[in-house]
Design a protein around this nucleic acid. Structure first.
Lengths: 146, 146
DNA sequence: GGAGCACTCCCCACTTTTCCCCACGCATCT
DNA sequence: AGATGCGTGGGGAAAAGTGGGGAGTGCTCC
């Protein structure tokens, strides 16, 4: 189960976003057509299939809640988390707070990112890519040689 | 049973706060729709389902009461503790002293924090998050030691 | 010891939001 | 050219949040 590809779809007045059929097609049955959706890194939204999210929850549950940093992190990730099941048309509803957080409004860029799906405001994604100091080739060399 | 999500609800004149339906839905039957409510860390209110609280009581019971720090900690956590059962509308009543402690008045921010629920004054929560020296991405890298 | 007061708990009614279903238009494939 | 699959929009039913009222209980003061 690997998500790939991109699409720019609309976000309607109810906060609904279609998930590309290509990405729906690779979901495991265990995911039950349901995602855990939460804030991502760099101001985007993450969608994890339910089965994939279970591993992340396990890691969070192992944290020591008497550590202040751990508490801050757990609050920051869990407060944005929500479960959303695909409706009959293959869409998920994203809560207003999350859309505001990612500055998504009207149109959304949907990216397949291996084990999860990302939703970006199209303009914000362009800015993010422009800000990256290294080009694709340099990045590839550094990351893939680790 | 994992609590997640956020909501900003009202606190009425009787100190009642609605618990979001999403969070009520994940309660174990053993919790009997009842929470142990006590002071939290960083000036908020903690709500532990009854079954989850049992584990904390066990840990407290194992403390060495001949240690002065242990005695102070036990006093501080237990003196605020109270039990509250959901009413027919899915609300809990929070005692005036606890509301004063967390500076909650009028409106409350309710956060799912994995094994418990937290209730914050919205402004105070913003301040808390602003005070964090590290951003979300840095925190995640350190806490999850990825 | 009894009456009155205050508090708490439970129930009812209203308003808003959410969820689910149906219908349309466009593109693609046969 | 028709049929099928996919993205988009809207409406109605059900659930969720909010506020107020009334009965029962315990306390205090007379």
């Amino acid at each position: 189960m690997v998500f790939k590809g991109q699409a720019e779809y609309s976000v309607d007045s109810k906060g609904r976003v279609s998930i590309p059929a290509k990405m729906r097609g690779v979901l495991n049955p265990e995911a039950q057509n349901t995602f855990t959706i939460t804030r991502g890194f760099e101001e985007c939204i993450f969608l994890y299939p339910l089965d994939q999210w279970a591993e992340i929850e396990e890691a969070i549950g192992a944290l020591n809640m008497f550590n202040p940093d751990a508490r801050t992190f757990v609050r920051a990730i869990m407060m944005w988390a929500d479960e959303a099941t695909l409706d009959g048309q293959g869409r998920v509803t994203i809560s207003r707070p999350l859309l505001d957080f990612a500055d998504v409004d009207g149109r959304a860029l949907i990216i397949g990112a291996f084990d999860h799906i990302e939703i970006w405001d199209p303009d914000r994604f362009d800015e993010y890519m422009d800000q990256q100091p290294d080009d694709y080739e340099t990045l590839a060399e550094r990351v893939m040689n680790m």
